[in-house]
Design a protein around this nucleic acid. Structure first.
Lengths: 127, 127
DNA sequence: CCGGACCTTCCAGTTGCGGTAAGGTCTAGC
DNA sequence: GCTAGACCTTACCGCAACTGGAAGGTCCGG
């Protein structure tokens, strides 16, 4: 499979697949004589694994760890759970942050008349 | 006021104050003969305005617009409201995204025993 | 007059790619 | 056999919004 076939199969842009190879996350299975990257099914599975991990917001380095665990038949699920739980607390922290931003901003937007006059509670709050 | 006094008064790192000057967001009020930036109260107020705007997640370019409106005695509050409402919908979109990520990930983390065995619903889901 | 705490500019690095250029390769059709 | 165009390669720039660090100038207390 050349890189464009692999990228389609994994659901990632070609550029991203090449980038992942460059940083040693998922290397090409081999190269043709002309230097073209080739990918097999196993590599495509790894790429798709990374894609799904990234959708959860795991960083590239976390994806690297997760991929290592994915490939490790002797893994402890506690390792996986630790990484996922960490991400979960990050998400929850972000949710709390967004919630308070949302409440404040929604309040201000609601209080602003939004007409041609300059009076504005949003500006008042920021200034 | 030199830059460190201004940065303390505005609640921003010196580096950031310098950066804002570089990009023409809030320039120093003047320079000493030696080339040191000096800030007056009005500039510090602008810096603090930017700091609070940034806390709401407004981009630098949005902050530039908001600062322009802050400074404009003839502004229409509708302009301010438009920018804030846009940010609000972004926040809401992000909240929905995080909510679904949270629900999925929380479910998986809960289902993972987190012991020394390799069986793991999180890995199963990603793989 | 000296040490240290300021200040200056400029350059590099961060994250995770996307865009684009310059050039090699492969393949279908004539 | 040749050519057009669709691939592929590496390499470098750019993004957002800074942060850190190097090299060098300035200012102030003792």
């Amino acid at each position: 499979m050349n890189i464009s076939a692999a990228s389609k199969a994994a659901g990632l842009p070609v550029k991203t697949v090449r980038y992942y190879a460059d940083i040693g996350l998922v290397e090409a299975t081999s190269r043709t004589e002309a230097g073209y990257r080739t990918y097999d099914e196993a590599s495509v599975r790894k790429l798709a694994f990374i894609r799904r991990s990234r959708q959860f917001g795991f960083s590239i380095e976390e994806c690297r760890e997760l991929l290592g665990l994915y490939e490790d038949r002797d893994r402890s699920s506690s390792e996986v759970k630790r990484i996922a739980a960490k991400r979960l607390t990050e998400i929850e922290a972000k949710q709390r942050e967004l919630q308070s931003l949302h409440d404040e901003l929604a309040h201000l937007v609601k209080a602003c008349r939004g007409d041609t006059r300059p009076d504005c509670p949003i500006i008042d709050y920021l200034g």
